[in-house]
Design a protein around this nucleic acid. Structure first.
Length: 833
RNA sequence: GCCGGUGUGAUGGAAUGGUAGACGUGACGGACUCAAAAUCCGUUCCUGGCAACAGGGUGUGGGUUCGAGUCCCACCACCGGCACCA
């Protein structure tokens, strides 16, 4: 009988839909396991082949965990608010809610077709009022605890989306979503005080089982540095504070630089002789976007403030003050001390403006570049610090500053507060009203959800206000506190909001009284294993850790961290359409190389419509079936690395499943495991089980292929095949269930294969009775020998020396040393006799 | 520039410091077939040799070790992130 994947997959998907073997049971006495994947954004394009990679991997892990006796929760939902849907709605004049509904239906169809073990009864949708009621509720708790505040600040403004963006959403100076130009614009925005959690977001990483690069990237993003703030006296009697991590270089200060936006400049206006020049520079800097300021950083610019000087508190030296756009107002104090000898940026500035360069750490050549001295550099020209190492000098000088009353220790972060407002329609309304008398007032909790009203047009207004601002009926309301006139906030939340806590909602998705019950959270929390893309490391992952910590502080969750373990998958790329391998003749190949260059042609590229290299999972499933799709996407390569989709290679996975299937005709009707296959079966059980939990699905599948190959050469019994089917079931659940049934196990065991226990292996049986060992002479492989497993070193060496090839090597030589690594190699060290 | 990662056959990729290239794709040969597809069996790192075998081989150059794809140092190339953060 032929392997009819289409019929088999339909059959089992229908059975699972009805019997719900994936239902997670809150409170069940078995140990729990919470496996999580990042829920998809339901785009109009549907699922692409990138999605199944992480989904299938965690699906396999959770299936293995079920077979290991865990009560598994593996949920799915939709991150449904966001700009692409809104833009689509504007373009096609369809309400975003309808677009979202249709897209979700399509995603659901595709996900079900992939045979994932999701508990569909727990499906969430962030744009559903029943869900965002609680997103709004959590926001209100943050507001009440002083973590949400409104401020006017320069924001990243996307000129195309007409929306404010978080720093994280600006990529290479353009909007991450649409690629539009980003400029700075003053706007009143809601902010979330994530910086208050900066230390905990760094320090708590230590106890988590996150892959290292995620930890490193989060730490770098938060960018904690410890230093000291030093107060300089100004010639006009004022004071100005700078921040430095290199207090040791204070004797090397030859000038000071302020950011062009520094507020004190306004105060000094009348004392600055060249104010016109200063004002012109300020205007110039304000015009540029942050990106432009960064781009043009090769050449330092600035203006000296004439009539103003500052006094270095350590040596009373009077030094000039400049403004320059290389100093950022948003970091530290907006003022830095210039130490050109030991900071490259300061060096460039000093060279440009002819400022003195003082060496305070020995060793560099100041005429060529700054000497960014290492920890054990020796201090010079620094009075009492001379002779100290930099490592000693930094804390010594910190202490000195503090004791002499002109400095204090200070920790700074690169992390900024999170811009939480969007001037868009398709997001959660912010449940606050602005009352003339009471200021910003939260809605009463009984008023939640504050439902997104229907509007006719979703276009943002030209002045940058949200489309909601045009709905005067909705905007004008009464103050919940005093009953007077008030206006609603018309900004909505960014699309990161709903994803900050969705893993909690899965635990108790239909609760109308609370975001989730205490009981459910205590049972399921924390997420045991969360897999997602590296691109979310400094966005979603950081934001949701922040929200979770807040929920912990107000006693809603019982763990400090939401996710115990985090792994990350590599992207699936497409072939460059001009890939040399596609050339049919040598001439074509040469022509391609001549035209495009050989390097570019080899590289894989992101799948995109314009390149025509997009692979649609629907097509793959239609041609080969879901199980083949699942096996191939796991077999494609190392899970963490990027991989290139190959239509050719998919066939190998299909062939493998065909070969599994065809064993049904070959199998001997014998319930026992055959002696010929026993050792390999035990090895494979161990290998596949271990590999799954390390996400090494590619080698697990390779091991299964090896086992099948052996079944073909040795023959196999029903007992052999039973083991194979169980091992195969997490990877290819449909074919496994069908084979299970056809072999009669469904009836004899009274369960589906997926409900069976993972087969046990006997460590003793994973090793063969006899081993092949390599024999090296002076580190070079010369022969192999077969020895019994329990052979002692003596026997092994004797066997090796008796080997014919080794005998030849021994001629005229003398044995000086032997190295034996059991079961692996013998190395004989020979010398001329 | 800084941080992280990667570099292995024609190709995707395997290798706790211990026989480099498992497993798959492609290619080649054979069986089956009128033929093709599918399937099954075999070969496939390079050089020399009929062969046994010998020599070479994991980006480059050094080092540690009985033994290095793996560890250390320097360099090159590519990928990802950050980028005037004082």
């Amino acid at each position: 009988m032929k392997y009819d994947f289409a019929a088999i997959e339909k059959k089992w998907q229908d059975i699972w839909e009805e019997k719900k073997p994936y239902a997670a049971i809150t409170g069940d006495p078995r140990p729990k396991f919470y496996g999580l994947i990042e829920f998809p954004y339901p785009s109009a394009a549907g699922l692409h082949v990138g999605h199944p990679r992480p989904f299938t991997a965690i699906d396999i892990v959770t299936r293995k965990k079920r077979m290991d006796g865990y009560n598994v929760i593996f949920p799915i939902g939709y991150d449904a608010f966001g700009l692409p849907t809104e833009n689509y709605a504007i373009k096609n004049h369809i309400h975003p809610a309808i677009v979202t509904r249709d897209n979700i239906a399509n995603f659901t169809r595709q996900l079900k077709m992939l045979g994932y073990g999701f508990d569909w009864d727990r499906c969430v949708n962030t744009s559903d009022p029943k869900y965002y009621k609680w997103t709004q509720w959590i926001f209100l708790q943050m507001f009440k605890h002083g973590l949400a505040y409104k401020t006017t600040m320069p924001i990243n403004w996307c000129t195309s989306c007409k929306v404010g963006l978080a720093n994280e959403e600006v990529v290479d100076g353009v909007c991450e979503r649409c690629g539009g130009e980003v400029v700075r614009k003053e706007k009143s925005q809601w902010m979330l005080r994530i910086t208050k959690y900066a230390d905990r977001l760094i320090d708590d990483l230590d106890d988590l089982d996150y892959i290292e690069r995620v930890k490193v990237q989060q730490k770098n993003w938060i960018g904690r540095s410890t230093g000291v703030e030093v107060v300089f006296k100004v010639s006009n009697g004022d004071e100005i504070t700078v921040y430095t991590t290199r207090a040791d270089t204070l004797y090397g200060v030859s000038y000071m630089v302020l950011s062009p936006e520094h507020p004190i400049l306004e105060k000094w206006k009348d004392q600055i002789a060249n104010w016109d020049e200063v004002a012109a520079y300020q205007a110039e800097a304000a015009r540029k976007s942050d990106f432009e300021r960064g781009e043009l950083n090769k050449d330092k610019t600035g203006v000296c403030l004439q009539g103003i000087r500052v006094i270095n508190p350590v040596n009373n030296a009077s030094v000039p003050v400049f403004i320059s756009d290389y100093v950022l107002m948003g970091y530290g104090t907006g003022a830095v001390m210039g130490v050109p000898g030991h900071d490259q940026r300061d060096w460039e500035f000093a060279m440009k403006f002819g400022l003195p360069i003082v060496e305070v750490v020995k060793g560099g050549d100041m005429t060529k570049e700054a000497y960014v001295a290492k920890d054990d550099g020796i201090m010079v020209n620094s009075d009492w610090m001379n002779g100290m190492t930099v490592r000693e000098a930094i804390p010594a000088m910190k202490k000195y500053c503090v004791e002499h009353g002109f400095g204090k220790e200070k920790v700074n972060y690169k992390l900024r507060d999170w811009v939480f407002s969007r001037q868009r329609y398709w997001g959660e309304p912010i449940p606050l009203v602005n009352c003339e008398k009471c200021g910003w007032v939260p809605l009463d909790e009984s008023e939640l959800p504050l439902v997104l009203p229907n509007v006719e047009s979703y276009e943002p207004t030209d002045d940058g206000e949200s489309p909601l601002a045009k709905m005067t009926d909705w905007v004008n309301t009464t103050c919940p506190k005093c009953g007077g006139h008030a206006v609603r906030e018309t900004d909505t939340m960014p699309n990161w909001a709903g994803s900050c806590w969705y893993y909690l909602r899965y635990m108790d998705p239909n609760n109308d009284e609370a975001p989730f019950s205490k009981e459910a959270e205590e049972y399921w929390g924390p997420v045991d294993w969360y897999n997602g893309g590296m691109e979310h490391t400094t966005l979603h992952l950081l934001y949701s850790r922040f929200w979770h910590k807040f929920l912990y502080d107000i006693g809603l969750v019982h763990t400090k961290e939401p996710y115990a373990k985090r792994t990350s998958h590599g992207m699936i790329l497409g072939r460059n359409p001009h890939y040399v391998g596609y050339a049919e003749t040598e001439e074509e190949k040469q022509a391609l190389i001549a035209h495009y260059g050989s390097q570019a042609l080899r590289q894989s590229v992101k799948m995109s419509k314009s390149l025509g290299n997009v692979v649609n999972p629907d097509d793959v499933i239609k041609a080969y079936g879901t199980d083949t799709m699942r096996v191939y996407i796991m077999f494609i390569g190392d899970f963490e690395k990027t991989a290139t989709w190959s239509d050719e290679a998919v066939k190998g996975s299909k062939r493998f499943l065909d070969r599994c299937w065809n064993l049904l005709e070959l199998v001997k009707d014998d319930a026992a495991v055959s002696p010929a296959n026993e050792a390999l079966i035990h090895k494979t059980i161990k290998k596949v089980g271990d590999d799954i939990l390390e996400l090494k699905m590619n080698t697990a599948i390779a091991a299964l292929m090896t086992l099948v190959n052996q079944f073909y050469s040795n023959g196999c019994t029903k007992g052999d095949l039973k083991n194979l089917v169980l091992l195969l079931s997490p990877f290819a659940p449909h074919i496994a269930e069908e084979m299970w049934e056809q072999l009669g196990f469904a009836e004899s065991e009274g369960k589906m294969a997926m409900q069976m226990s993972w087969p046990e292996y006997d460590e003793a049986k994973t090793v063969d009775a006899e081993h092949e060992m390599a024999v090296q002479v002076n580190g070079k492989l010369r022969s192999t020998i077969r020895v019994a497993n329990d052979a002692d070193e003596d026997t092994i060496v004797k066997t090796a020396l008796a080997d014919e090839k080794i005998q030849r090597q021994m001629e005229g030589m003398q044995l000086v040393k032997t190295i034996v690594v059991k079961n692996r190699i013998v190395n004989l060290i020979l010398k001329k006799a």
